[in-house]
Design a protein around this nucleic acid. Structure first.
Lengths: 268, 268
DNA sequence: ACCTGAACACCGTTCAAGT
DNA sequence: ACCTGAACACCGTTCAAGT
């Protein structure tokens, strides 16, 4: 279960001794980070902007203003807007690497690991609902790198967890596919359900309440109370358990037909 | 199984007697539709533009040019770009209403219906891969209208099919949720895997082939052949069957605990 | 080394004006 | 009734110039 740190790219231009230079500034500065721009600072500001006002509010000019700088200054740290958005996706996903709950040694094998990983991704989706659709739909680097697990590191970690626990290569890949589409489908819908900030300042004023006439849709009308209920959390857990159970059944079945070729080590 | 026609909005401003005025024009005009703009024509041109060059290529000015008109003329038929995109989503989804394979009387009850519907949605996703991410992520009209089944009509049709076949209200809603997240997860990933046209003219020239060094990711490296294989179609079918089987099991189990309260009519 | 001013091409959108 | 010209505010991006 070797999972190291960040993925973005090792920027060797970090101008400080970790926590030293950060002390002579409010540390939680509200908007304008005077002390010196920095790729990481730019990306984090971009995430903040999207979180607060939606993706369409992320313009080079606004991001510059947010950082107390002209837009053109950003091109030192980022090749352009598209690539800035890629960086935002990486930055948000990088939070997973720092998520203690995902990293503690799994006490119940691979199931525990997949369980923790799934909830880690869910926390990220809920923390950055305006970013998650972008995480889900940006074209991945390779066709088999499936969102929302968009980095080689996580794919490796996933496959390693399964193959070192008795899964055949084919089964591990199949599990990877099932797992990612489960995460994507559920979390995208959960995030959509919550309503994401779209463009500038949602709904101008006293909402006109676009109430549709449901008379022609009797089932929808009758089930409206059920439909409106937010069961996302429970559903996520249930579906996840269902998936893990299925994977385990398949695993056991495969062990029976092709008896254990050296029971793997439960190390780490 | 009552499913009527289009959903967009009943535009009463159609300036012709259906097929009469359309006869004095090539009928399959390649780009510039001289004879008179029309909301439907505008939307279809927008779909074509996205299909060919990606969402970012859809600008009011380019769409106008494509239709042989200045951009400002489009504002007669569409309130603005955002709403144009909503119209594109509706237009593409409307193809489902005309899909014969979805509409024929289901010969094997609700399972047959869900099966046909799923494949209908999949056909649409594959026919318009550049539109599907937008279908998946545009904020729905109501929180419980879940992509990719974005219209009241389909939700009604879905719920009707299940509740008239023995499903309780709760079970029907749960099935609706499971079904939509299945569709979304699978199809979004299948479409992403195929690589969608992003911005202008993919890859300028002889692709530099960004080959990543896989040495640090031994499992990924070993499984690369498996991972690269496109099993989307088979996986879609398998996962769909798994889902339908689970729904059926739950249905049977519920019948046992609460014996049939009037076996419903299999009409239409 | 880092940022800015000015400029360019291209946006969405409004509105008075043309036909 | 339908389309256009001109204009406005706002984009992304380049590049020579400032400090």
């Amino acid at each position: 279960m070797d999972v190291a740190r960040s993925g973005s790219e090792d920027d060797p231009d970090t101008p400080r001794g970790r926590g030293a230079a950060a002390s002579d500034v409010p540390a939680g500065a509200p908007a304008s980070g005077r002390p010196g721009l920095d790729r990481r600072r730019v990306l984090r500001a971009a995430v903040e902007l999207i979180d607060r006002h939606g993706l369409s509010a992320l313009t080079m000019r606004r991001l510059g203003a947010h950082l107390g700088v002209e837009a053109m200054a950003l091109y030192r740290y980022v090749p352009g807007r598209e690539s800035l958005i890629d960086g935002v996706v990486e930055t948000v996903l990088d939070e997973l690497y720092g998520d203690a709950d995902v990293h503690i040694a799994p006490v119940h094998g691979w199931q525990d690991y997949l369980h923790r990983l799934a909830h880690g991704v869910r926390r990220i989706a809920l923390a950055h609902p305006a970013v998650f659709p972008t995480i889900s739909t940006r074209p991945p680097a390779a066709p088999w790198i499936r969102p929302p697990l968009r980095s080689l590191r996580w794919v490796e970690s996933f496959l390693s967890a399964l193959t070192s626990n008795g899964f055949s290569d084919e089964a591990a890949v199949a599990a990877y596919r099932a797992y990612t589409s489960f995460l994507l489908g559920h979390l995208l819908l959960e995030v959509a359900q919550r309503g994401v900030p779209i463009s500038p300042e949602d709904e101008p004023e006293g909402s006109p309440e676009v109430t549709v006439d449901l008379d022609e849709y009797p089932n929808v009308q009758r089930l409206e109370p059920h439909l409106s209920q937010d069961e996302s959390a429970a559903e996520f857990d249930e579906s996840l358990e269902t998936l893990l159970d299925r994977l385990e059944r398949d695993l056991v079945a495969s062990r029976r037909s092709r008896p254990s070729p050296t029971q793997s080590d439960p190390s780490t």
